[in-house]
């Protein structure tokens, strides 16, 4: 009679549904449909969708592109290690290299401007976690991911690695500066 015994009725599938079960299935299924359609809806009407644009690349090719950007747009350096701070042209392609255990270079972006941010790892898996916005993206070696991003408010943000990448994982963090657009 119970759930640990064979069903008492040989033709158990003919037992009619209780109203409570039927009602709940209908309600639950309707909610599942709402949740399903929320995702395509947000692609059309929402502003936060992760880009599907990605390219195969190699560490050498990616580093060369990042180096070219650094050579052209470095405005100053930070920390004892003289890490370049790059202020790229709004709307342009921006490169961020993730590697054991740092991000390179440091970016300075303008508020309200849109950038094509290319991120890739040159060794293991890493994480792109923009704080305190809390935007989190996986970084793969060999996959150059192009994310179009629009900073909305000036300030100093952090990018931390949130994919475990070995013993110094906890030191892998950098800054991202967002400044007001230059006048004129």
């Amino acid at each position: 009679m119970s759930a640990i015994q064979p069903p008492a009725e040989r033709i158990w599938w003919k037992q009619p549904l209780d109203r409570v079960e039927g009602t709940w299935i209908v309600i639950a299924f309707a909610w599942c449909l709402v949740m399903f359609f929320m995702m395509p809806y947000w692609h059309v009407y929402g502003k936060q969708n992760l880009s599907n644009e990605a390219y195969r690349s190699s560490p050498e090719a990616f580093l060369a592109k990042a180096q070219a950007m650094v050579d052209k747009h470095t405005v100053r350096t930070v920390t004892d290690q003289q890490i370049p701070v790059v202020h790229p042209v709004p709307g342009s392609d921006v490169y961020l290299v993730a590697r054991l255990w740092s991000f390179w270079p440091v970016l300075e972006l303008e508020e309200g401007q849109t950038y094509r941010l290319h991120i890739m790892s040159t060794d293991w898996l890493h994480g792109f976690s923009l704080q305190p916005e809390n935007i989190n993206i996986q970084i793969h070696p060999g996959y150059e991911h192009v994310v179009t991003m629009t900073p909305t408010k000036e300030g100093t943000y952090s990018i931390i690695c949130n994919e475990y990448c070995g013993i110094n994982h906890h030191t892998m963090a950098t800054k991202l500066y967002v400044v007001k657009p230059k006048k004129g």
């Binding site: 976690s129 906890h170 030191t171």
Partner: peptide
């Protein structure tokens, strides 16, 4: 929800050049 990463030894980033 406040952004603390998983699998992470130190949320204070001791030893990092530019800690969050």
């Amino acid at each position: 929800t406040l952004g603390v990463p998983r699998r992470h030894w130190d949320m204070a980033f001791s030893g990092a050049l530019m800690p969050h």
